[in-house]
Simulated scan of single mutants.
Amino acid sequence: MNIFRTLSYLSLLGLTFLTASCKDEVKDALVPYPEDITFNEIILERFSSRIPDAPFRSGATSTGFVQINIQKKGATDFSGFALSNKNYRSYPWILSPDFRPSTGVSADLKRSAIDSTVFSVYTTTPNRTETYLIGHAKDDQAFLSFDDAVAPQHVLIANTAYTYLLANYGSNYSGTLDPATQQYKLDGTKVRNPNISSTSTADYGRWYLPTLAGKDLTRIAGYTALSKTPTYIRLLITGYLKGSLTGTTTFYLGTTKGGDIQNPTVETIRSNWTKVDLQPLGRVDKILFTIDGNYRDAEQTLLSPAYFALDGLRIQH
């Protein structure tokens, strides 16, 4: 048994929460952003996350300060921004039909496995930043505020592993695609878990990641194939000053061709930190983040999880 599966099984014995859903993470040299608010003065344990109990501040005299909103809803749910330094980029081993324990997976372990992707930034190589924010754009609570008016310059935005895996592959992932449903078959050909370096076929399997709401999602390319409509997931960033709107900018977290009307040939699911220009917002004392898109069910409920990662905020007074 390889180390990754061993870690998952050890979690059943209650040895550690972290190994309930993911392998050990590896970090490269850390990248400093001396002119940006990086949240790195907020210290977390290695490969961990935290949902603060109340809104909190971050920054320094050299970079400026920001107030980060959070509404905690029990031990694991929140609206606004939580803190993390995790970078788990693969499907949870413990939820795979090929690697889960014969005794089954409890509701708590299932939630821990999903949360390992919710609280991880998705990057193509090991994440090189330290503490960053996980935004849950729900109930208009994902906002940053400032004591005085500032001119925001840019911010780094990325997908969480949760959003990326669901958008790129769907809840089910194998080597066999059902053309009728546009979902990978959970009993299809075994494939390597994304971003796992082992090439041993003993580590190949079928992979599974439901939403926290219990739904199984189709990848956005499959959703487009079925609906015959370009599909997009986007982050709307809106500035306010004394309650009045100052400007809005849009960042596409994922889109098939034609989804971004300004760039109709672009087809992407963001797989790294991307610098987003905030200068169109003008001078603000509040920045609100919301998730929008046409990736919706029959009741017009947005299917994509409303999570994203944020770091490297730069402001000018």
Rank of each mutant, 00 (worst) to 15 (best):
A137W: 01
S102C: 09
A113K: 12
P126I: 00
Y122S: 03
Y122L: 10
D115L: 12
T123G: 02
S106P: 13
T123F: 03
D98E: 13
Y132F: 15
S102L: 15
P126Q: 02
P126R: 01
A107Q: 14
T103Y: 07
R100F: 04
T117G: 03
L109N: 01
T125S: 12
R100W: 05
T131C: 06
S112K: 13
I134R: 05
N127W: 02
D115Q: 11
A113M: 14
F119W: 11
D108R: 10
T129W: 00
F99M: 11
I114S: 01
S112C: 11
G135Y: 09
A107S: 15
Y132V: 06
V105C: 06
L109Q: 03
F99A: 08
H136C: 11
T124S: 13
A113H: 14
T124A: 08
Y132W: 09
T117I: 03
V118S: 04
S112N: 15
P101S: 12
A113V: 14
V105L: 05
R111T: 10
P101G: 07
R100A: 08
L109G: 00
T117N: 14
V105W: 01
S120G: 13
L133I: 10
R128K: 10
T124H: 05
L133A: 07
V118E: 06
V121H: 07
S112R: 12
L133G: 02
G104W: 06
F119S: 06
H136N: 15
V105H: 01
S112Y: 15
T117Q: 12
Y132Q: 09
D115W: 00
G104D: 07
D98I: 05
T123D: 03
T124K: 12
T103D: 07
G104F: 09
G104S: 10
Y132I: 07
T117C: 15
S120T: 11
N127P: 00
I134L: 13
G135H: 06
T124P: 00
Y132L: 09
T103L: 12
S106Y: 11
S106F: 11
S120R: 08
I114W: 01
V121A: 15
D115F: 05
R128Q: 11
K110S: 08
F119D: 08
V118R: 08
D98V: 05
D108S: 14
A113P: 13
R128D: 14
S112I: 05
V105A: 02
S106Q: 12
S120L: 08
D98K: 07
P101H: 11
S112T: 11
V105G: 00
D108Q: 12
T129C: 03
P126Y: 01
I134Q: 04
G104E: 05
R100K: 15
L133T: 05
A107L: 13
